[in-house]
Write a protein that binds this DNA or RNA. Structure first.
Length: 574
RNA sequence: GCCCCAGUAGCUCAGCCUGGAUAGAGCACCUGCCUUCUAAGCAGGGGGUCGUGGGUUCAAAUCCCAUCUGGGGCGCCA
């Protein structure tokens, strides 16, 4: 980390001075923990409140004065200043600015051969309807975590479970068979997953007035389980359409998968595992014969794993699947399940059950939950028809961006407009989805998500394009060695923000919180735009211009790197 | 009843993990700024009992306890 050496040296320096003053010293880590950033760069680069350093009874402000008086400037620290009970420290601007700028261009480590991989499970689609905007929150969050892990030198395995069986799938199949058998996605010109979803909707509509349809769907599921040739054929066709369409949506979002687990291939597989556990006396049996996992000692409700009729549950396959993954990838460092927080209990129970069954990797499982996505009008409901479809939303965003181009840059070719509009639309969407704390509910306001003003992806793209334009326009090349000329308050502010980059990225990863990175980028872009308006980068003083170009370029690199980590592509020109 | 999450400006949210200097953005509203590096921009203005009550501390939006409100979840759904 950029600041690390400064922290250490400052701690040394302070302890030395405390010694001189015959005041108790502190170990370096606790001194470093006390250090804070001053509220504004003019006050210094680093600050330490002296409440805990001052000897008993001494006024902290007076002690701060005394400390400052005795602290010695060094090659790293050019000035100390007492401000009330704070000692503010100024770093040597000659070297600090240059280090910050160079750090902006540093490249992340490449994963070593023997790095333990991290598996991220996300998306978890059903094959009865197309993806909706809730899935997009999942994809955006997961993609960002994937890139943060990779940035940190981890190898990432992208995985999804495709829920391709069950009564909901049969509903769509049944409706198709009853009312649409002569049609196909091709004949109707529909995207294939939308086609499947249409029949699911048809089913729901008809089932309201014809309850017998529910029973028919159940009967179809039984036939499916009995491997009925006709039902299986229908199912295969249905799933191919659904999955093909979903992968098209994934491709648009930039989501890819290394492993696809199809529920239909293992939905009965947990049974033997739990039956063995039952025989070992780890599980209990209910009056009706159901097998229950006792979880009192984990502070959780008990969980059935085998129904009274002997069939297994989704939970049971999840036990199997977790074990399978640790078997297939024995060096897995962890599995991150990116799944809505409605399922928090499911995962708590799952991880506790793995522990109970003696699976040593139980500790390596983590549920990254995220809040429900709601609309300004309330929760999305497929019955009320208020589900915001993923493809349609993306189309709408692209269309908005195209209209902006037709207004602003009508001279561009339609293909270039299409290309740029696509990048801008995706930046708007993805940034909107990751800029907010994942655990909070997200009110998805389509109008606001489409807006390109304010705290948005397009704002960040605009800022990077603006910097690139300056770099192109200047007749000079940047020079980091001139960085000591960057002395304006806003330049100091920009350097301070840049200096936080690594800690922000580290925090985003550690706390599974890409949004902190999002807000950081907004702060950086915002401050740069202020700078842009108040200061000329290209001007008569060549040396100064080279310094400012170096700063601008460092900002550009940081914005691009940050956006990349959020899964967002940038443009050279807006 | 129990568990989890949220409550900060009219609205949408940062800040809380790891306490520190006057609580920050965006949207909306009002006023300015394009013959000069991209105005998808910038500057300024109004707007806050940080849900409430206690406690800990030199210091609390941040930690602890209680409480209210909203959302989600809780043995044979996925």
């Amino acid at each position: 980390m950029l600041l690390h050496s400064y922290h250490e040296k400052l701690a040394e320096n302070i302890n030395h001075t405390l010694n001189v003053l015959h005041v108790p010293t502190h170990d370096a880590p606790s001194l470093i923990a006390m250090m804070v950033r001053p509220p504004s760069p003019e006050k210094g680069d680093l600050s330490i409140p002296v409440f805990k350093l001052a000897p008993n009874g001494q006024n902290p402000a007076a002690f701060a004065q005394q400390l400052v008086h005795h602290l010695k400037t060094t090659e790293l620290f050019s000035k100390f200043d007492a401000a009330g009970p704070y000692v503010n420290v100024f770093f040597n601007p000659q070297t600090y600015a240059q280090k910050i700028i160079e750090n902006a261009g540093s490249v992340p480590p490449v994963p070593g051969k023997d790095v333990e991989p991290v598996m991220i499970e996300y998306a978890s689609p059903n094959t009865n309807k197309p993806l909706h905007v809730g899935h997009l929150r999942n994809l955006a969050l997961a993609e960002s975590m994937i890139r943060l892990f990779s940035h940190n030198g981890k190898k990432v395995i992208r995985a999804q479970v495709i829920n391709d069986r069950g009564v909901h799938i049969c509903k769509s199949m049944l409706a198709y068979e009853k009312w649409g058998r002569s049609t196909t996605p091709e004949s109707t010109g529909m995207k294939s997953d939308h086609f499947v979803g249409k029949w699911y909707t048809e089913f729901t509509k008809h089932a309201e007035t014809n309850p017998a349809l529910e029973e028919e769907a159940q009967a179809m599921l039984v036939k499916w389980e009995q491997n009925d040739t006709h039902v299986r054929e229908l199912w295969k066709k249905n799933n191919e359409w659904a999955i093909k369409g979903m992968f098209q949506t994934y491709a648009r979002m930039g989501a890819t998968f290394d492993v696809n687990y199809y529920e239909s291939e293992f939905y009965q597989n947990g049974k033997d595992i739990v039956m063995q556990a039952y025989e070992k006396g780890l599980l209990k049996k209910a009056d009706n014969g159901a097998i229950i996992v006792p979880l009192e000692k984990f502070g959780l409700p008990d969980k059935p794993v085998i129904r009274g009729d002997g069939t297994s549950l989704y939970f049971t396959q999840d036990i199997y699947l977790a074990m399978k993954r640790f078997h297939d990838y024995p060096t897995l460092e962890r599995i991150v399940y990116v799944v809505a927080s409605e399922q928090e209990m499911h995962f708590k129970q799952l991880f506790a059950t793995l522990k109970l069954l003696g699976v040593p990797q139980a500790e390596k499982c983590y549920h990254l939950g995220y809040g429900l996505l709601t609309l300004p009008s309330g929760k999305m409901s497929s019955r009320a028809g208020t589900v915001v479809n993923a493809d349609e939303l993306m189309d709408e965003l692209v269309q908005m961006a195209v209209e902006e181009y037709n207004k602003r840059n009508p001279e561009l070719s339609t293909s270039e407009i299409a290309r740029r509009a696509n990048v801008i639309a995706l930046s708007a969407l993805k940034f909107y989805l990751v800029k907010q704390d994942a655990k909070k509910e997200l009110v998805f306001d389509p109008k606001e998500s489409i807006s390109f003003d304010g705290q948005t992806g397009p704002y960040l793209l605009y800022t990077t394009a603006r910097i690139l334009s300056i770099l192109r326009k200047s007749t000079h090349t940047l020079d980091v060695h001139a960085a000591n000329l960057l002395t304006l308050p806003t330049e100091k502010m920009l350097l301070t923000i840049l200096s936080k980059k690594d800690e922000v990225i580290a925090a985003a990863l550690r706390n599974y919180s890409p949004h902190v990175l999002g807000h950081y980028l907004l702060d950086l872009a915002n401050t740069f735009n202020t700078y842009y308006h108040e200061t000329k980068i290209i001007q008569e003083n060549e040396k100064l211009e080279k310094a400012r170009l170096a700063l601008a370029n460092a900002i550009r690199q940081t914005l691009e790197e940050g956006l990349y980590l959020l899964g967002i592509e940038t443009l050279r020109e807006m």
